[in-house]
Amino acid sequence: MTLAAHPVVVRSRAILASLWAHADRSWGAAEKPRSRAGVVLLLAAQVVALVVFYRQAKQTLGPLIRTPALPPIPATTSMTRFGMTETVRREIFRELAESEIAERQRAISQNTWNGHAWSRFDDLGYVQRARGRELALRYSVSLTQVYLVLDEGIRERWPGPDGQPLSALVEPLQLRTE
């Protein structure tokens, strides 16, 4: 048997011929292979591509997926609720109430939104949010805890700076049409 007739050589040549035929036809685009060898090689190439993607995805998305969760709100104890003492909670609530009262007064004095009630209430939310973030930073608590304190103060009718509890009602949704 000559070397050229050796099955391995014959097979190799067939594969090379298949590849070349594929590449050669490929002026006619990414043609699909028409032989077993072609299919296998293409599959192998796709697997390599998949591995490349997997490595890329692992590198970029891995840290994102593994981001640890924040700890839940601490359980209530005899001294604390939401991880804070009552004194701290009342201080936070008082400051929230103070900013709310100030905003309500500003809305009336400046006749904001021409008296559009929902828009004024919505402004209140804006102020509350800003103050809430500030308080969270100052007291080293989370924003969630600040909102829990607000909820507690409204439910328990803690007095604000004016001695009155905050209203538990909201202005019903009434979108501006202009």
């Binding site: 939401f82 919505d122 804006y126 949010r129 989370s142 909102y147 829990l148 909820d151 909201v170």
Partner: peptide, 28 residues
């Protein structure tokens, strides 16, 4: 800041649409 979770019965909070993400986490 992401919300922190807390269990408990569902209740309505006066809320704030600008921080809407906070409330489902505390079941409110």
């Amino acid at each position: 800041e992401p919300p922190r979770h807390m269990g408990g019965e569902f209740r309505q909070h006066r809320g704030n649409r600008r921080d809407g993400h906070i409330f489902p986490a505390i079941n409110a």
